[in-house]
Write a protein that binds this DNA or RNA. Structure first.
Lengths: 226, 226
DNA sequence: CTATTATTCAAGTGATTAGTTGAATACTAA
DNA sequence: TTAGTATTCAACTAATCACTTGAATAATAG
């Protein structure tokens, strides 16, 4: 203790938080947990890594105090240990986006819809949908979609996307959205669509932001699905 | 690019920021830079690591987009590349303090003055100083001290502290303060004093907070020092 | 020019990390 | 109890990291 210095020890503790957030897989796990509580297997599928690996990452996150877990029956559910973790995620993302040129490039060129959609009002997006020029897909799970979605959007959870790929018209622009800027589902969707040669992009915000902006919302009659 | 997935690449970029903030020395450097622009040598002395090592850390920080540099004559001055970096530092610290028990322990038991001082109004601290029960030391550089300091505080920059250790009365409580909660100078001071068996602690806030709280401020006649 | 100073580069070492694999530990259902 | 499932642990490899050392760039002064 005296050999290293209290100040040094203190910074080492702070560094543990940074270390926990220094791995792409762990960050992705955190982003998923920012959406909802998940068990290990779900996370492992979402992140596309083995269960054992996921488990180890989760334990590193827990040691850094970023996530907490609760056991229910066979499964262990993990969640963020506080809202300040979301804040941290969000600021780290902001700093990265602002300062790392490559990130901006990735976002601008590959995933978001900035140049083509942001300049035109969202209302116009809606009219284009009606004209069949743009297809909006909602990649959230069905029950979230049912509770409210952008008018004209088609519900297309990630696992169903593969089956539907052939149905898309390669001339129509496809815009994917999910739960918000922290939600990573739309990234996957856009990537899959692009690989098929389709014109896909990602709406910068998710459904909550859309709703808050006072734009129209459509609900599914609960009898239709499930 | 397609082998790894755009989303994966994106998270790897975000992770670079976390990686930059995953090392105790780098964090300390960032905290110093949050106070003021510094050149490599200054930082190396402040952090207590070799110049070459400091330089390498600084380059990692720059690659992550957290610091920027400007060359003036022989020296290269580094500074934070934006206020969002301060925000990031501050939130990482907050998360660590909230979630990591060991950090709380370190802070509570070793460095801050919480239990003994926070409950009593700062005005009372001042009266105790007048009675000689408490000695307040200001560990900032002399020119900052001169521009304004807590009444009764003695200016005691870190490098002068060693020479003055013998002058302290072991019965008197010593309270150190510096530039703010992000300033790390007082940590060093408290540690040195404690090693001498003195009753030292750290004021949670620094001088700016004191001033903002509307408490009295003393200025040095510029002829006295320098 | 040469000498000096501040910083960076390059190479090397020991420690740590991400990931894999396979076994071990819980918990549940029958 | 036994069988099956979800999670974690333990051991291992390749890659990366922190730090040191000594040399290589620059910029400046004499």
């Amino acid at each position: 203790m005296s050999s290293k210095g209290v100040k040094q020890l203190l910074f080492e503790q702070f560094a543990r938080v940074g270390k926990a957030m220094s791995n792409a897989n762990r960050l992705e796990i955190l982003e998923f947990l920012a959406q909802s509580e998940c068990n290990v297997e779900e996370l492992s599928k979402l992140a596309g890594i083995t269960v054992a690996n996921t488990s180890q990452h989760l334990q590193q996150l827990r040691q850094a105090g970023l996530v907490s877990s609760r056991k229910q029956g066979l499964k262990v559910y993990y969640s963020l240990s506080g809202d300040d973790v979301i804040e941290l995620l969000s600021i780290q993302r902001k700093v990265a986006e602002r300062h790392i040129a490559e990130v901006d490039q990735l976002i601008d060129n590959f995933l978001t819809v900035k140049d083509s959609l942001e300049p035109l009002p969202r209302e116009e997006l809606l009219s284009r949908v009606k004209q069949g020029l743009v297809t909006i897909i909602d990649v959230r799970p069905a029950f979230e979609y049912d509770a409210g979605h952008v008018p004209g959007a088609i519900n297309m959870p990630l696992d169903k996307l593969d089956d539907q790929l052939a149905d898309f018209d390669s001339d129509t622009e496809i815009v994917a959205y999910c739960r918000g800027p922290h939600c990573v589902l739309a990234y996957d969707a856009v990537e899959k669509l692009r690989k098929q040669g389709l014109k896909a992009s990602r709406l910068e915000d998710g459904f909550p932001e859309w709703k808050i902006a006072g734009l129209p919302v459509e609900k599914t009659n609960s009898k239709l699905n499930s």
